[in-house]
């Protein structure tokens, strides 16, 4: 593994690394569970007044091996990506893709409803939609 970084001539890979380092140094409040960049799967989180939308970028995973759990306001995504078997007499020139078991944990806000969760795996992205509780949704209060 030490060979590649030592002799790397890929400017893009180098830029990618620099960008990652910069982002890391600007990330002043990393989560205690280490929601760090560069892991597998990468996770994007968005929020709307009605729900929390999570996107786990997990390409090449057998959907049956994916496991999504919510326990005490903590969402866990785990699964396994099998390594491709390299046939005999074949050589691997570049080996960058992740293989093996993975697990990512995200802390959810307090107002979510753990019974209203939808998960869908499309084009290698696991989209999890967690609804917020009715009571927590913004309401307009009429002034009398």
């Amino acid at each position: 593994m030490a060979y590649r970084p030592l002799f790397s001539r890929d400017v893009f890979a180098e830029l990618d690394r620099l960008q990652r380092e910069m982002l890391q140094s600007f990330d002043i409040s990393p989560s205690i569970r280490g929601l760090s960049r560069g892991g597998y799967p990468a996770i994007n989180v968005g929020s709307t007044p009605r729900s929390i939308e999570l996107y786990a970028f997990a390409p090449g995973v057998d959907p049956a091996s994916l496991d999504v759990q919510i326990e005490k306001g903590v969402l866990t995504v785990s699964g396994e990506r099998k390594a491709d078997s390299v046939p005999e007499k074949a050589s691997r020139h570049i080996d960058e893709r992740f293989a093996g078991r993975f697990r990512r944990v995200v802390t959810l806000p307090d107002d979510i409803d753990p019974n209203a969760v939808q998960a869908r795996y499309t084009d290698g992205v696991l989209h999890i939609s967690v609804a917020r509780r009715e009571a927590a949704q913004p309401r307009r209060i009429t002034i009398q």
Binding site: D16, D84, V86, A90, S91, H93, I94, R97
Partner: peptide, 10 residues
Amino acid sequence: LPPVDVIEDA
């Protein structure tokens, strides 16, 4: 930059 694997056979 997407991660890739490159495998060569005969």
